[in-house]
């Protein structure tokens, strides 16, 4: 994972790369996507590794897993909400708007608490949804509302003449949205979506309060260890460094996505 991180940052940071490294570039997005199941395997253990209950998952791997899993769920859901909001069916549009407004009116910590503490109360005793899954769902549902608004901004910036041209050619609403409007809108929404991603990464630290020992939780438990009393400065500087590294990595990735492709405005 560290290798992957290092590779990502170095390849994105510079445009002048030695040949061998350059060839790896197209694989990077796939590597990140595969991180999610790989992370699960690493954390949960498998036949060769020691099996670990999800309650005991932790560390940087958990932080990344939470961020990636929630992100991959929130993105399609958010896009769906944004499109649903513009639907001609009044009920669909209203439900989407309600969901977005509700989720944005509530602080994330409340949603997380609800997911972790209150949800089990509502479900019958037999269904025990594991803690990490609950966290991922809570993050995803929360972030989706913000993603929806970011995408809506993108959608609104597409001139109506694009849809007119598509209609004049005989393309129906769904094809127009899928092939013409959405690709352009998402490209425009990348800066806003990057914000969401960075925020999501940082917000995973809230799970430290709710019993998951991710990155922040690890530092807390480090400091609680009698052997390391007094090493606060060291731990927090290191913590800040790791978060900085991760967030910068995301920002660089976003810059690269913006620069590539015909819609790049160049910056």
């Amino acid at each position: 994972m560290v290798v992957l991180l290092f590779l990502t940052i170095t390849t994105l940071g510079s445009d002048r790369l030695p040949q061998p490294l350059r060839r790896l570039q197209p694989f990077l997005p796939w590597a990140w996507i595969l991180m999610v199941p790989a992370g699960v395997v690493l954390l949960a253990g498998s036949s060769t590794l020691q099996t670990v209950p999800t309650r005991a998952w932790g560390g940087l791997t958990l932080t990344l897993l939470l961020t990636l899993a929630s992100g991959f769920l929130a993105l399609p859901f958010g896009i769906g909400l944004a499109i649903g909001r513009t639907s001609n069916l009044g009920l669909v549009a209203m439900l989407c708007r309600l969901y977005i407004d509700l989720m944005r009116a509530v602080p994330l910590i409340a949603v997380l608490f609800f997911g972790q503490l209150l949800l089990p109360l509502f479900l019958p005793v037999e269904i025990e949804v594991n803690r990490v899954l609950r966290a991922v769902l809570a993050f995803a549902l929360f972030a989706a509302a913000y993603v929806a608004e970011d995408v809506r901004g993108g959608l609104q910036s597409i001139p109506p003449t694009q849809a007119e041209a598509a209609a004049a050619l005989g393309l129906n609403g769904s094809l127009t949205m899928r092939l013409i409007i959405l690709p352009q809108a998402l490209k425009i929404a990348v800066p806003a979506l990057t914000n969401q991603a960075i925020g999501l990464l940082q917000n995973t630290s809230l799970m430290a309060i709710l019993g998951l020992i991710e990155l922040l939780g690890i530092s807390q438990s480090l400091l609680a260890n009698p052997e390391y009393i007094g090493r606060h400065l060291e731990v927090y500087v290191w913590l800040a460094g790791v978060y900085w590294l991760l967030c910068s990595g995301m920002a660089l990735l976003a810059k690269r996505i913006e620069r590539q492709g015909p819609l790049s405005t160049g910056s």
Binding site: T161, E164, A165, A168, L169, P262
Partner: peptide, 13 residues
């Protein structure tokens, strides 16, 4: 078929 004043080509294609 229709041709528009502002061309309205699809910029991402």
């Amino acid at each position: 078929g229709m041709v528009f004043q502002q061309f309205n080509l699809f910029p991402h294609l």
